[in-house]
Design a binder for these strands. Structure first.
Length: 920
RNA sequence: GGGCACUUAGCUCAGCGGUAGAGCACUACCUUGACAUGGUAGGGGUCAGAGGUUCGAUCCCUCUAGUGCCCA
């Protein structure tokens, strides 16, 4: 016998163990070798990561799909694994070394440090894998991959070498986003823009308020950003037609002025026309360098003074301006963000923010500081380091993303790959069509070291291994030369981009690659379209000549119940594992699936999870009811052959539910599918069917009992199946518990067959049970309104009923009496005096409660009913009175309104009669 | 500044050209033989505002207001 309540914590580990023992999730099962393949690669979580709500949603949806297709008989591969997360992992290990007061990374040296990282990975990395298992993720865990695995690394090298040979990977000196904390380049996507606003204001010219450098230093100590500084740059020579001897420029980063090599004004800005004509120059304060004033449309005449300082080595826009005007690029920062030797001696070696204060103070002392104003501007920060990112001029490796993007764009244009919901393709196109060269080198030690070697003169040789590079070098130099390998590693996303095929064994031509590539669908969040989707599409198209996935399902972000993005700093993070502990993985999964409507974020309230836990309990108890009543599925049970109306009705309802769930899942409408099974299990099976069959089970019609027991068991089986993708644990448990034909099940639920039902619905049964349901509901309603004690049994008299209705009432006599708490059903010509009356169809049902009911309450109730019916009739009648409506509407709509008028009129008539009887 | 969404019951959200739905919360009653993590009944909405298209608009279009996100 089942326990009285469902305890997820007890069954979940056990069920996981059973799946594991049965190898239930392995792809390529022998019995499915002729089946269609269905594959999903997991968006690899990062090896340092732990399960957060976004993962929970992402993996729940994947698991729902995968379990659904597995039950539909497909050969399913859900490929799990993790990426090595270059910066994040290196950071974790470095921090650990520091905390343990062990030698630092540099002291250990590269080889030893990398060994330590592997140690860390073995011991504490990959926590998330076990967390995914707790969620119920039915990945083929035997195939787990890691981006640093031997095979995947081989794929990385092959891709690098091939792209290099095709000229699609190259080395270039450009500005990169430099992270001074980690001393590495990072990609645009790893940069977060943080809005800053300062508080210090000062204007030159007020003798009462001299410049206070200490006060500014204090403000900047808290936050170095948030101010606009206006400097006067003196002209090298006075220019005729220009009335001042200086030009004012503004900047939020004063220290970069030491690297200024130009000042730009708009070519059509009349204020500066004379300066441009004269080819004027300014003398850069503090430095003394003469730099040109150039005309460039980059400067905005509306903004500030319309003149901007140009620092080509430290600003992306300035870099472009500098290129157009051949301006010198002077690097004033080193890898740590300290000032280089290319600045005046006083500033050399200073930290960038120290230099900021000094430069401002020194300019103020020279009378060249015009003003400081607080301003709101965005400042780039490293998403891992949280340090302020500097655009920095370095040699890096780049992928020609623009070229690789072309087929990837075409694949979506032609529909080879489809976004669901479709509107995300706009975001994809927008980004792909404006894609920048992808900087793939990182100045880290943890990752795939770039397969490039340099000769003594710096000539580069790229090859699959050192021997190959040496051979190339020997040929190039005409003799053997010592080579040194490029120290840098590749961006983690470079290896992740290969994930859909590298995990299947590429570059080897494996059977898995053939069978499971392209994958069926990628499930991911919109925030990852650029990271994942775009890069996998590019690499897939290039190396496999085929898209990596047919569909891309983009799901929402999980927010807190107020709609705020969850973040540690806000303290509003909901930990999925805590929810699992409290309510069970099934409840969490169902919640996420039920709320995953396309195109909308999920605002998660824990109460919602509790509600679905209750749903699980409900199912549990329905099963318990079946068990107590010996509802056992029979070998020969055929839902098409059931005779009893109730059973004919429920098998039809089951078919409708199965169709709704199936079509919901096929269309990635997880919420609709979840809603359909929820409503069926609770609202139909539990609320009505199980209640309606109680009198039968308690009765003495043996044939009906046998059929009903078998039918109850069969419907429950269908519920378990339909619910399994959403709630795998409880359904698997109940499946095992609810024996079949008196014996234990032969298959696990997760490997059983998905319901494919048809031809089960019966209009006649639907109508009959619909009538019973309506009668019971209406009687209950009246009882409550008349304040009849819930326990009291009352009589019921049906009048004016047709033969068919009388027969119906007789057939369901027991049921109606029980559910409506009646002590008998009688038939009469006219309703007895002092009765409450209900109009159902052609009949009027009387509850003779003379002396029990409050007649004034009954009068009120009837009047209310009449009013409602009148409202309905008037609405429909008014609609019909409009000739245009009747003339132009489809026939069925006109008919519908005619029926409404007739039906409402009928009701009014009989309700009025009932009212009269009371009054008379 | 460019783009994408959103605004429906107290809250969180579905829906969608033909008389508005769910869950939670709320109210009343019920320890009835699966379930109080439950049952029964009930209250609660000019579907953000203004125009337009249509026989008919919560739904389609335009504008306005507000909110959120992405990219500059």
């Amino acid at each position: 016998m089942l326990e009285k309540t469902y305890q997820p914590a007890e069954i979940e580990p056990r069920i996981n163990e059973e799946w594991n023992k049965a190898d239930a999730f392995r792809c390529g099962r022998a019995d499915r070798k002729d089946a269609a393949a269905y594959s999903i690669v997991i968006p690899p979580p990062n090896v340092t990561g732990s399960l957060h709500m976004g993962h929970a949603l992402n993996n729940t949806l994947q698991d729902v799909l995968v379990r659904f297709e597995r039950m539909r008989g497909k050969d399913v591969l859900w490929q799990p694994g993790m990426d090595h997360a270059g910066i994040a992992t290196q950071m974790v290990v470095e921090r650990q070394l520091m905390e343990r007061q062990q030698p630092s990374r540099r002291e250990l040296g590269r080889e030893e440090f990398v060994r330590r990282v592997w140690d860390w990975k073995e011991q504490s990395g990959g926590m998330i894998v076990n967390q995914l298992k707790r969620l119920g993720a039915s990945c083929d865990w035997s195939r787990e991959r890691f981006t640093m695995d031997e095979g995947l690394s081989r794929a990385v090298v092959k891709v690098f070498v091939e792209l290099y040979r095709k000229g699609l990977i190259y080395k270039d000196k450009r500005l990169v986003n430099w992270d001074p904390k980690f001393q590495t380049a990072i990609s645009d996507l790893e940069v977060v823009q943080v809005e800053k606003k300062g508080s210090f204001a000062w204007v030159d010219g007020d003798p009462e308020k001299p410049f206070d450098g200490d006060a500014l230093a204090k403000v900047l100590k808290k936050d170095p950003s948030g101010h606009m500084y206006h400097f006067r740059y003196p002209l090298a020579e006075k220019v005729a037609g220009y009335d001042k001897d200086y030009i004012i420029v503004a900047t939020t980063r004063p220290e970069t002025m030491l690297g200024d090599t130009g000042v730009a004004v708009h070519p059509e800005d009349e204020r500066y026309e004379a300066l441009i004509k004269a080819g004027a120059k300014v003398r850069l304060p503090l430095v003394g360098r003469e730099i040109p004033i150039v005309a460039d449309t980059y400067s905005d005449p509306e903004k500030g003074t319309g003149a901007v300082k140009i620092t080509p080595a430290h600003d992306f826009n300035d870099f472009e301006v500098g290129k157009r005007h051949n301006l010198e690029k002077i690097n004033v920062l080193d890898a740590f963000g300290k000032l280089t030797d290319d600045v005046p001696e006083a500033y050399r070696g200073l930290d960038r923010f120290e230099a900021r204060k000094r430069v401002v103070a020194d300019l103020a002392a020279l009378g060249l500081l015009a003003k400081i104003e607080p301003t709101t501007h965005t400042v780039p920060h490293g998403d891992r380091s949280n340090d302020i990112i500097e655009p920095w001029l370095t040699d890096q490796w780049y992928v020609n993303a623009g070229e690789l993007a072309k087929p990837a764009i075409a694949a979506v244009e032609t529909g080879k790959t489809q976004f669901v919901p479709k509107n995300w393709e706009k975001t994809y196109f927008e980004w792909m069509r404006n894609i920048q060269p992808w900087c793939i080198s990182r100045q880290l030690w943890w990752g795939h070291q770039i397969p490039a070697w340099y000769g003594p003169d710096g000539h580069v040789f790229v090859g699959p291994d050192e021997a190959d590079a040496k051979a190339q070098a020997a040929k190039h130099y005409g003799k053997d030369e010592a080579l040194t390998r490029d120290e840098d590693v590749l961006d983690t996303w470079f290896s992740s981009a290969l994930w859909p095929f590298s995990t299947l064994g590429w570059p080897d031509e494996t059977a898995e690659l053939k069978r499971y590539y392209p994958t069926s669908v990628l499930v991911t969040g919109f925030d990852i379209i650029f990271f994942w989707v775009a890069r996998m599409m590019m690499m897939g198209e290039h190396f496999m000549k085929e898209v990596p996935f047919h569909d891309i399902y983009i799901h929402a972000l999980v927010r807190d119940e107020k709609g705020q993005k969850m973040s540690k700093s806000k303290g509003n993070v909901i930990d999925p594992l805590q929810l699992i502990d409290k309510y069970g993985a099934d409840a969490l999964r169902f919640t996420l699936a039920a709320m995953a409507a396309q195109g909308r974020d999920i605002k998660l309230a824990p109460q919602r999870v509790e509600g679905y836990r209750n749903f699980a309990t409900k199912l549990w108890n329905a099963a318990r009811f079946g068990e107590m009543n010996e509802c056992v599925r029979q070998f020969d049970f055929d839902p098409h052959a059931v005779k009893h109306t109730l059973n004919r009705w429920i098998v039809g309802e089951t078919e409708r539910a199965a169709n709704a769930v199936t079509s919901g899942l096929e269309a990635y409408k997880f919420n609709e599918a979840a809603g359909a099974i929820y409503e069926f299990v609770w609202g139909v099976y539990c609320d009505w069917y199980l209640e309606l069959i109680k009198p039968i089970l308690a009765g003495d019609d043996e044939e009906a009992i046998v059929e009903t027991r078998a039918c109850t068991a069969w419907v429950l089986d269908q519920c378990l199946k339909l619910l399994h993708p959403f709630m795998p644990f409880i359904t698997e448990e109940l499946w095992a518990h609810m024996v079949e034909h008196g014996e234990r099940r032969l298959t696990l639920l997760c490997l059983s067959e998905w319901p494919r039902l048809s031809g089960l619905s019966s209009a006649e049964a639907d109508e009959e049970i619909g009538w019973v349901v309506k009668l019971v509901s209406d009687v209950r309603s009246v009882r409550t309104e008349m304040n009849i004690p819930a326990g009291a049994k009352i009589p019921l008299v049906i009048t004016g009923a047709s033969e068919a209705t009388i027969a119906r009432a007789r057939r369901h006599d027991e049921t109606i009496r029980r559910l409506a708490r009646l002590d008998g059903i009688a038939f009469a010509e006219a309703a007895p005096k002092g009765a409450a009356l209900i109009v159902i169809g052609e009949a009027t049902v009387a509850l003779p409660l003379d002396g029990v009911i409050d007649m004034s309450a009954e009068r009120k109730r009837l009047q209310k009913e009449i009013e409602k019916a009148e409202g309905d009739r008037n609405k429909a009648a008014t609609w019909l009175a409009n000739e245009a409506n009747v003339a132009k509407s489809p026939e069925h709509v006109v008919e519908l309104n005619r029926e409404r008028v007739a039906e409402a009129g009928d009701r009014i008539q009989r309700l009025t009669a009932a009212l009269k009887r009371i009054e008379g």
